[in-house]
Each structure stands twice: as structure tokens, then as C-alpha cells.
Design a protein around this nucleic acid. Sequence first.
DNA 1: GTGATTGCAAATCTTTTGCACTAAA
DNA 2: TTTAGTGCAAAAGATTTGCAATCAC
Lengths: 140, 140
Amino acid sequence: MANERPYRALIERLKAVGLRPTRQRLALARLLHEGGNRHLSAEQLHEEARAAKVRVSLATVYNALHQFTAAGLLREIVVEPGCSYFDTNVEDHHHFYYEDSGRLEDIPGEEVRLARLPKPPKGTRLSRVDVIIRVSGGRG
Amino acid sequence: MANERPYRALIERLKAVGLRPTRQRLALARLLHEGGNRHLSAEQLHEEARAAKVRVSLATVYNALHQFTAAGLLREIVVEPGCSYFDTNVEDHHHFYYEDSGRLEDIPGEEVRLARLPKPPKGTRLSRVDVIIRVSGGRG
DNA sequence: GTGATTGCAAATCTTTTGCACTAAA
DNA sequence: TTTAGTGCAAAAGATTTGCAATCAC
């Protein structure tokens, strides 16, 4: 985050989904997409922003996360009560959940194969399928 | 819940898992297992208790739900932030989640077949696999 | 300019906790 | 008795909201 030059691509991406590329949204988007796929809570992202010297309020972090999620730039995941994670990977994939540490980890889409799936009940359409493999006992 | 006679089987079940069969726990256990498989939040169960003229505090409902879950009598499910559901079905099965209404519905175990599953990362053991099929657009 | 966005603080909601009181064994 | 369990009210967290100030266009 040393580089303050606005990233064209990010700006376009935000504009494309109807969000003004504000200083805060750009900074958060950059933080989110640094260093590969991540699973961050609002609080964690807020902390990262602080660490990166980006001044942004927690309320704005929540706003941005929800707007990004609505725009398909993020995916929200809830495994435990009282804490949402936002996944920067919006491709088809699933998760390991380390119960002891509360950490999430991506599983590439191919590594889980659903051989049979019931069809959505009449009048509904499939939104998505979440597979969460809960493991415990390790170092997380 | 008209019948106030303590149910032997329930009493034994609670004792078996090390929980004293108190008036509150018995009443809640009965409510939970009335009418087949259900997915209730603490608030909903508390409301049902009120409706059934069972005097029990919300804190006790939370306590009981967590104790029952720890004892394997219930299963906790979290799909949206800010609300846990407790599933009276502890058999192997998965769920439909109606995004519009927030309702959960059981899918019998056989109707979802996982043909391939990665093994738990080194040092961890499988705790359980949750499959949540999210659907939207219907009446929920 | 003008309307979207932000920050702050207060409000909300779910869940947990501390502790005196009550009930089961 | 003795110890677990309960109720209440307060506390704790996560998230949302209201609204004036600020920023993008």
C-alpha cells in the first residue's frame, strides 16, 4: 500500500458496478486483493487499513464490504455466530474450517465433487452451494 | 405440551449426558422434539416456551441449547450473521437455505452425494461436512 | 453545485456473564 | 445439605443507523 497512485483497473472495476471510486473504497479494495485469496472480517480489514495508514472508519468498512459483496466482488461466509468473513475468491470453490482457530481455507472447486444434488424446490432457483469441511485438532 | 407428566425417556436422556433433568430443560427438550425436525433460534424457542406457558428465561434457553448441542442432542447451524439455528435432526443430512425468508430445510443424507472430498489437512481430523444449498426467488 | 459517501456516535441485536436465589440429588 | 441450575439485569460484541460534514463528478 505504499503506492498511492490510483489503479486504473480498480477504478474501472468499481465504476463498472456503480460504485464511486472513493479514496476509502479504493484503498480497501487494494488491501483485500493483496496477497492472494483471503478471508477477512470487517474488524480485521479495518485493522489492516490502520496498519497501512489508510484512514477509514469501521462503518465505512462495513459499507464497502457489503457493497462489494452485492456487486459480486466478494463473497460473504458465516461459519460461527457473531462473525462474518469476506472471501476475496469469488470463483467456484469450497472451504475447510478449522474449528479450533476459527480460520477458513479455500478448497479448489475440483477437489470437491458433488455427485448428486437435489434440485431446488419448486419456485426457487439455485443461488449457490456451500460445502464447509469442518476439521479440528490440528494447529489450525 | 399440555401433559405435565415428566417423560421418563427424556429424563433418562438428559441424565445420560450429565444434565440434571430440570423443569426448564425438560420443557425445552419437549418443545424442541415436538413435530419432527425443526430449526429454531434461541429467540424462537423462548417464544414457543412462552406460548406453551413454560416460564423460562432467555439466558436459560441459550444455556440449554448449548448444553444440548455439546451433548449431541442438537446441531447448531449458522447461515447468516447474527442468528444461530439449532437443528433437532442430528443424523447425517444437509440443508436448503431459502435466502429470501431465512428458512432452513433438511435434505435427507442420501440426496446429496459427495463423490470426492479432500482429506483433512495433516494433524487435523474431520469433524463434519456441511452442505448448504442456497436458493432464492421462491416463497421460501 | 449536487448528490453520493464518509465519519462519528448512538442505537440495535444477539449472545454472554455475574451473582444472588432456587431446586435437584 | 451440597452443588448444579436459573433468572435477572448488566455487559459484551458485531453490525447498523442517523445525520452533518466532505468528496467525486
